[in-house]
C-alpha cells in the first residue's frame, strides 16, 4: 500500500477524495487494455508455433520435436549460440564482479570525490549506441584476437561495458542503503585490512545488489545482438536469426523460451529486492532500479 493511500485512509473522508491515484475500476481498465495489447504479439508467437501446415489447424508437434530431441543437425547453430551466450553471460558477470565491484567500493569508501566521475563513466554506455561502439571495437578486437585468440568468450569484455549502467545502478543503490562507509570505518578501527573489509564486510552486505546486478547482466547478455552480429561471432540472437531462415517455427519456439527465461530472471530480481518482507519500500525500489538504465533523477549528490 502506498503512503498516499495510507494517508487517505487515516485521514478524513475529504482527504480521501483528493487521493491522486486512479480509482480501482480506472486502474484495472488501463492495466487490462494496455496489458492485453502487449500480450497480443506474444500470443501470436505461441499461435504461430502451433500451426499445422498450410491447411490450418493447430497441434503441439513442433514443441514435441524441440523437447523430444528430434531436432535435425540444421538446428545445431542454436545450441552453439545458446552455449556461447551462456558462457558469455558467466564471463561478463565475472568481469563485472572483478573489475567494477572493488572499484565502486573503493570509490565509495576512499575516494568519494571521484563518485561523480565513476557515475558518469558507468552511465556513458547509454549515450554511446552499441552500433557506434562496434565501429571502434572492430580494430580493438583484431588486437584482442591476437592476444587471447578468437574465442567467443572475449566478447565478454565488450559486454562488460554495455552492462555497466545496469550493474552500476543496482550495486550503487545497495551500497548507499547499507552505509558501507560506516561499516568499513568500524572494520578498520578493529584492525581489518582492505581485503578483509571487501570480502568479509562489504560483499556480504551488498549481496542483494550483486545478485541483482548479475541477473540483469545475464539478461542483457542473452539479448545482445548488435556487437555479436557485426563482429561475426555466434551468440543466441545471431543463431536465432540464422535458424529463422531455415525454419521460422523452431526459431520462434526458442525465442519464446528465451523470453520466458529472461522474465523469470527479472522476476527473481524483484523478489531478491522485495525479500518477501512487505513494507520495505527502499528494497523494492533498489530492485526496480536495477531494471532501469538510468537513475530516476541524476541527483546532484550522485548517490541515486
Amino acid at each position: 500500500m502506498s503512503r498516499a493511500q495510507a494517508a487517505g485512509r487515516t485521514g478524513t473522508a475529504r482527504l480521501r477524495t483528493v487521493h491522486p491515484g486512479p480509482g480501482r475500476v480506472t486502474r484495472w481498465v488501463i492495466v487490462a487494455v494496455i496489458g492485453v495489447l502487449f500480450l497480443v504479439p506474444i500470443v501470436a508467437m505461441v499461435e504461430f508455433t502451433l500451426r499445422k501446415g498450410v491447411d490450418g489447424g493447430h497441434d503441439f508437434a513442433r514443441w514435441a520435436t524441440v523437447f523430444g530431441g528430434g531436432l535435425t543437425p540444421e538446428f545445431k547453430p542454436i545450441f552453439t549460440g545458446l552455449g556461447n551466450s551462456l558462457l558469455l553471460a558467466v564471463v561478463t558477470v565475472l568481469v563485472m564482479l572483478v573489475l567494477l565491484v572493488p572499484t565502486m567500493v573503493l570509490v565509495r569508501i576512499r575516494f568519494p570525490q571521484l563518485q561523480r566521475v565513476l557515475e558518469f563513466i558507468c552511465l556513458l554506455p547509454i549515450t554511446i549506441p552499441a552500433i557506434v561502439l562496434v565501429v571502434g571495437l572492430a580494430p580493438v578486437y583484431s588486437v584482442v584476437s591476437k592476444m587471447f585468440g578468437s574465442g567467443v568468450w572475449t566478447l565478454a569484455f565488450a559486454y562488460g561495458v554495455i552492462v555497466l549502467p545496469y550493474a552500476y545502478r543496482s550495486i550503487q543503490a545497495n551500497l548507499v542503503a547499507v552505509d558501507v562507509v560506516t561499516l568499513s570505518e568500524a572494520a578498520r578501527s578493529l584492525g581489518a585490512g582492505w581485503l578483509t573489509i571487501l570480502f568479509r564486510v562489504v560483499v556480504p552486505n551488498i549481496r542483494r545488489g550483486l545478485l541483482a546486478a548479475s541477473f540483469i547482466s545475464v539478461a542483457v547478455v542473452l539479448g545482445e545482438f548488435t556487437i555479436a552480429a557485426l563482429l561475426n561471432r555466434v551468440n543466441l540472437q545471431t543463431a536465432l536469426l540464422v535458424v529463422n531462415k531455415a525454419d521460422p517455427f523452431i526459431a520462434v519456439i526458442f525465442a519464446l523460451l528465451a523470453l520466458l527465461f529472461a522474465f523469470v530472471l527479472l522476476l527473481a530480481i524483484g523478489f531478491i529486492g522485495g525479500g518477501g518482507r512487505p513494507g520495505r519500500r527502499s528494497r523494492r525500489r533498489a530492485a526496480a532500479s536495477a531494471l532501469s538504465p538510468v537513475a530516476p533523477a541524476l541527483s546532484p549528490k550522485g548517490s541515486a
Binding site: 500500500m1 502506498s2 498516499a4 493511500q5 487521493h19 491522486p20 491515484g21 486512479p22 480506472t26 486502474r27 484495472w28 488501463i30 492495466v31 494496455i34 502487449f38 540483469i216 539478461a219 542483457v220 542473452l222 539479448g223 545482438f225 540472437q237 536465432l240 536469426l241 529463422n244 525465442a255 528465451a258 523470453l259 529472461a262 522474465f263 527479472l266 522476476l267 530480481i269 524483484g270 523478489f271 522485495g274 512487505p278 513494507g279 520495505r280 519500500r281 523494492r284 530492485a287 526496480a288 531494471l291
Partner: peptide, 28 residues
C-alpha cells in the same frame, strides 16, 4: 494506473519484470 498499487504486490512485480524483459530483451 499503477499509482497507489501495492509496491510489493504481485501486479508490481510482474509489471517490473515484464517491462524489463520487453525493454531490454527485444531485438531479434
Amino acid at each position: 494506473a499503477l499509482l497507489g498499487a501495492k509496491p510489493t504486490g504481485v501486479l508490481r512485480s510482474i509489471v517490473d519484470a515484464a517491462s524489463g524483459v520487453l525493454a531490454q530483451f527485444g531485438g531479434v
